[in-house]
């Protein structure tokens, strides 16, 4: 179901329950704050057909959820390490291209 890096092979397999399961395997307990970002990511992909790297993700969060949340520190606190990669895994999206 997952590729070697932990991304969902078939994007249609995604369900909220699966997200919870994937998150717990990554040692993250999903709160409302996490879900807000997961939904935003899925909307982003739906709208533009790309998985965002950090900069566009921050900008999208800032636009939709306000400047307070649109900061990399905030996203790091929810999805430690690489927020775009970790959140994309949980949201069932492809790996962000050229993610730094």
């Amino acid at each position: 179901m997952l590729d070697e890096e932990g991304y969902l092979l078939n994007l249609d397999d995604w369900t909220p329950e699966l997200a919870n399961q994937l998150a717990s395997e990554l040692e993250i307990e999903l709160t409302d704050a996490h879900w807000e970002i997961i939904h935003l990511l899925r909307d982003f992909y739906q709208a533009f057909e790309v998985s965002p790297a950090m900069r566009p993700l921050v900008k999208a969060v800032s636009k939709k959820l306000g400047a307070e949340k649109g900061r990399s520190i905030y996203l790091m606190s929810l999805f430690p390490g690489s927020p775009p990669k970790l959140a994309a895994k949980i949201a069932g999206l492809p790996k962000p291209a050229n993610c730094i």
């Binding site: 982003f44 057909e49 790309v50 965002p52 566009p56 900008k59 999208a60």
Partner: peptide, 15 residues
């Protein structure tokens, strides 16, 4: 192929 037209609206997210 992918719907590249959709990406146009996303370009502002990339500045």
């Amino acid at each position: 192929g992918k719907n590249l037209h959709k990406l146009l609206d996303g370009l502002e997210m990339y500045d």
